[in-house]
Design a protein around this nucleic acid. Structure first.
Ligand code: MN
Ligand code: MN
Ligand code: ZN
Ligand code: ZN
Lengths: 144, 144
DNA sequence: TATCATATTAGATATAATCTAAATTATTGA
DNA sequence: TCAATAATTTAGATTATATCTAATATGATA
């Protein structure tokens, strides 16, 4: 999309806008998905410039640390990454592990007694169940 | 605690109550924590019977599949496991990755339009920030 | 241009989890 | 009782995921 905007967001975070780093960020922004490091590595290398695996991991870590990218952990699967855009919640499929966005809505905070001396930064909702692809499959499996 | 109760819950799920499997379940129930597979393996082997690493992983997977144990994914860290007891939410420390329980309270469901054809099984809240141990450390780090 | 911090790289290494195939243990039902 | 069957365990190999190393390259600054 807007190459200049990506460059500015990188440099605004004190990160040089290198071709490899740009490629990771651009890929995450145009795909509106939740990709694994392996998928990102493969995708940015389908076109030049070639980026090493170490660099892909380094850049993902830097981007997460800078707050431009979010790391989504899924039980039993590789980490997934997404460009941080509008706030949203997540739906995670029990069967295929797919992560999907759910429109943001505000979450009631816990009683301050529950939080104690912890410093609360954010609240996020995770929904679990079956995605639209898996729901019918699982339902028919039951029949047999 | 109640050895007979553990035995019954295993057999009620169609799992034999083997010494190795019992040891995993008993450990998770007496510790009220979120342990990694490596920690569980190490703990159940401090006493007999010796259980192999493969068996520890096999049993954790079986117990999760049976719904007796919950697998908690944390970004950048090994999976953590806990015996399923009372419903609760989780607080995850940004700095040390510790997972802590937050008293359960009901979560407003998303608009049905957001869910679409997905099958929703559960909603869970994840709180993020700094745990009581890390909060002061991070605060003083800022000062320097 | 010289200097210095930042970034990239291939390959080695570390960590987490699963697989394999043989042996063991428990269950079933003649 | 005992053979047949199914479930479980095991050591070690293997796979998957992620990080480290140390040499090189690149870009910013003076
Ligand atoms: Mn998302
Ligand atoms: Mn918990
Ligand atoms: Zn699915
Ligand atoms: Zn902490």
């Amino acid at each position: 999309m807007d190459a200049e905007a990506i460059r500015r967001s990188l440099e605004g975070s004190g990160l040089r806008c290198t071709p490899q780093r740009y490629a990771v960020m651009a890929f995450l922004m145009e795909q509106n998905r939740h990709s694994t490091a392996a998928e990102i590595f493969e995708a940015v290398n389908r076109v030049d410039p070639r980026s090493s695996r170490a660099t892909t991991y380094n850049n993902l870590r830097d981007l997460v640390k800078a707050g431009l990218v979010r790391d989504v952990a899924v039980e039993g699967r590789a980490a997934r990454f997404e460009a941080k855009g509008m706030r949203h919640h997540h739906f995670i499929c029990d069967r295929c592990g797919k992560v999907e966005d759910i429109e943001w809505y505000d979450v009631p905070r816990p009683a301050s007694g529950s939080i104690g001396k912890r410093v609360l930064r954010e609240c996020e909702l995770i929904f679990r169940g079956l995605c639209t692809k898996c729901a019918p499959a699982r339902a028919s499996r039951k029949v047999s």
